[in-house]
Simulated scan of single mutants.
Amino acid sequence: MMSKETLRTTAWLIALMSLGLACAACSSSDVPSGAARGKSAEAAPAKARKNLSSARVSDHTTGGRPETASGRLGSSVSLTSLKFDPPQPVTGDRIRAVIGVSDPQGLGAYSFVVRWNVNGVDVEKTGETLEEPVTFGDSVMATALLSVPGEEPRVLSSTVLVGNAPPVLEVVQEQGEAPGDYAAHIHVNDPEGDPVSLQLLEGPEGLVLDPAARTLRWRPSGADSGVFTVALEGVDSAGNSYRYRFDITVASSRDPARTAEVARQ
C-alpha cells in the first residue's frame, strides 16, 4: 500500500495535468487555421481602405459641389489689379477702372463694385466709369470691392493724377481777298485756358501764318496746281503739343483753293 504522502503527491500531479489540457483547448479555439488567418489578414486592410476613402469624399463634397481646401466656396478668387483707362488721363477725359480678377477654378461666384473719390470727396455714383468731369491736378482714387458668398470682401485701391490736356486746333477756310486766294482761320481751344503758340511746320511756298491773328494766307502762282500738304503745331504753356495736318487742293483753272482735312495729331 502507498503511503499517505505518496497519494497526496499523485493527486497533485493529476490535477496539474488536467489544468494543462484545458488551457491547450482554449488556445486552439481562439486561433484560426492557416487559411483562415490569411483571409483575415487580407480583409482588414481592405476594410480600412474603404473607410478612409469614404472619409475623404465626405470631407470635400457637399451637395455634389466641390469645395476648396479651406472648405469655403470660391476662396481662391482674388483681385489681381486695378488700372485706369486712359492710363494717364487729362482734363475732360472719362476715366474707366479696369479690374483684374483671378478665378482659377472658374466658379464665377463673385461680384464687384467700384467706388470713386475725387480730391478726397466720395462720388455718390458707383460703377466702372467715373461720370464726374475731371480737370488738371485732380487726384482720382478708385476702390474695387470684390464680394464672394460667405467670405470677407477683397478690397483694392489705386490713385491717378489728372494731367494737363494739349490744345486742339481746327482750320476753317475763309473767303480769300482775290479769286484763287487761299485764306483760313485757325481755331484754338485749350481745355485749361493756357496760352497757345502756333508754328507752321509744312506748307507750299508762299503760305503765310500769322500767329497773333491765327490766320493762314496764300496766293498760288499760275504754275501751282494739285494737292499741297500743310502741317501746323500748337504748343501750350505747359509744353503739351497738338499737330494738325490737312491738304490744300489748287485747280489748274485758278478756281478758289479748297481744303480737305486728311489727319489730325
Score class of each variant (00 low, 15 high):
Met2His: 14
Arg8Thr: 15
Trp12Phe: 13
Ile14Cys: 05
Ile14Glu: 12
Ser18Phe: 10
Ser18Asp: 03
Gly20Phe: 14
Cys23Met: 15
Asp30Ile: 15
Ser33Tyr: 07
Arg37Cys: 04
Gly38Met: 15
Glu42Ile: 11
Glu42Phe: 10
Glu42Pro: 05
Arg49His: 02
Ala55Leu: 15
Val57Ser: 03
Val57His: 02
Ser58Trp: 06
His60Ile: 11
Thr61Gln: 01
Thr61Glu: 01
Gly64Thr: 10
Pro66Arg: 15
Ser75Gly: 12
Val77Ser: 03
Gln88Glu: 11
Gly92Tyr: 10
Asp93Asn: 14
Ile95Trp: 05
Arg96Gln: 06
Ala97Ser: 05
Val98Thr: 07
Gln105His: 11
Gly108Val: 06
Ala109Lys: 14
Val113Phe: 04
Val114Glu: 06
Val114Asn: 08
Asn119Gly: 07
Asp122Phe: 09
Glu124His: 13
Thr129Lys: 08
Leu130His: 09
Glu131Ile: 09
Glu132Asn: 10
Val134Glu: 05
Ser139Asp: 11
Ala142Gln: 05
Thr143Tyr: 00
Leu145Met: 05
Val148Met: 01
Gly150Cys: 10
Gly150Val: 02
Gly150Trp: 01
Glu151Phe: 12
Pro153Ile: 00
Arg154Pro: 05
Arg154Leu: 07
Arg154Cys: 08
Ser157Arg: 04
Ser158Tyr: 03
Ser158Cys: 12
Leu161Lys: 03
Val162Gly: 01
Ala165Glu: 01
Leu169Thr: 04
Gln173Gly: 09
Asp181Ala: 08
Ile186Val: 10
His187Trp: 09
His187Pro: 04
Asp190Lys: 09
Gly193Val: 12
Pro195Gln: 04
Ser197Asn: 11
Ser197Thr: 15
Ser197Trp: 03
Glu202Pro: 06
Gly206Ile: 08
Val208Pro: 01
Leu209Asn: 08
Pro211Gly: 00
Ala212Arg: 10
Arg214Gln: 13
Leu216Glu: 11
Trp218Gln: 08
Ser221Asn: 14
Ser225Cys: 08
Leu232Lys: 00
Asp236Ser: 03
Gly239Leu: 13
Tyr242Lys: 13
Ser252Gly: 10
Ser252Phe: 13
Ser253Pro: 00
Arg258Tyr: 02
Val262Arg: 11
Arg264Ala: 05
Gln265Asn: 14
